[in-house]
């Protein structure tokens, strides 16, 4: 399977379609990002800091104007059409978005008039479930609680699509587990989807169906998580096992005293000598070795 291709047999409605998204800044460029998110799935966006994940989300939300490319969000292909479907979109952004002095009550009072589907009872329940203190000012809330408040507000108007930027940042393991369970419940009916950007790839492995990996503004891969994990193996061997052919094929080669490790396309793993060990990879390893491979390529 191609690294930038999603299973083509899916006939579901895409809640997000991005094609050839490009945005140039003086010191950074996002280049040719393309992906789709069908209804009923969770997609994770991964990559190091400054890779372009947040810029991609901002482009989807029309907070920045792309230089080129097509964006379709909930069927909306123009900025005006995308704004018109905001009621079906719940968003949590990385960073503060409410005034310092607001409490839970003020957040509800401020947002409710804008969303026809705002559900005050649901918002109150979510705040209670997530243990968000009612009387604490936003500025005095912990980072994790601020994220939870944004999430509660994002869910309170019954969106079809959730776009979350680093939602697990600042959450303790229990809260993170509850969030991941909530997201799985959210998509369970096959009509809802989640796009989330995170550094915590273990979380993604648990819940994500698709993954988009961006590095230095370029799309490294996009596809189904299982397909991606099945497409590569981790190889380990002694110094003598590292033939020139193998060295050329290995992605993100790491040498050490006793031998080497690296990533190899799964198909290439069949012809290896018996002394070379192959193991399944994790998403985190995939990200690290692809990153290392890109870094090595730049150095060479």
């Amino acid at each position: 399977m191609s690294m930038n291709e999603v299973n083509s047999d899916v006939a579901e409605e895409n809640l997000i379609t991005v094609t050839g998204l490009t945005k140039q800044y003086p010191e950074f460029a996002l280049r040719d990002i393309s992906f789709q998110l069908p209804a009923g799935y969770i997609m994770g966006m991964i990559g190091p800091n400054g890779a372009g994940k947040t810029t991609t989300i901002k482009a989807l939300l029309d907070m920045v104007r792309p230089d080129s490319g097509q964006l379709t969000l909930l069927g909306g292909t123009t900025p005006a059409a995308r704004v018109a479907c905001r009621d079906d979109l719940g968003v949590q952004l990385d960073g503060s978005i409410y005034p310092d002095t607001w409490r839970v009550k003020q957040v509800a009072a401020a947002l409710a008039p804008f969303f026809p589907q705002w559900d005050a009872a649901l918002f109150a329940d979510l705040c209670q479930d997530m243990a968000i203190p009612q009387k604490t000012k936003y500025k005095d809330m912990s980072r994790g609680t601020q994220v939870k408040l944004q999430l509660a507000a994002a869910l309170a108007h019954h969106p079809r699509l959730l776009v979350l930027d680093e939602p697990t940042a600042g959450l303790d393991p229990l809260a993170r587990d509850e969030l991941l369970t909530r997201l799985q419940d959210f998509i369970a009916d096959g009509q809802h989807s989640v796009l989330l950007s995170t550094h915590l790839t273990a979380d993604l492995e648990r819940i994500a169906d698709y993954v988009l990996y961006i590095r230095d503004g370029r799309q490294q891969f996009f596809g189904h998580v299982d397909d991606l994990l099945g497409a590569y193996v981790l190889v380990k061997g002694g110094p003598a096992d590292l033939t020139p052919a193998l060295q050329a094929a290995v992605i993100g080669l790491r040498r050490y005293g006793e031998g080497f490790t690296g990533l190899l396309p799964a198909a290439a793993g069949d012809d290896l000598p018996a002394t070379v060990v192959t193991e399944p990879i994790t998403l985190e390893e995939l990200m690290i070795y692809f990153g290392r491979g890109a870094h090595d390529a730049q150095r060479n």
């Binding site: 005006a80 009621d87 978005i97 804008f114």
Partner: peptide, 18 residues
Amino acid sequence: MAAAQRGLDALYALLPLR
């Protein structure tokens, strides 16, 4: 000033407002 300090322009961008 409040928008600059607390990133409220991002909040406005999430609302169904042109």
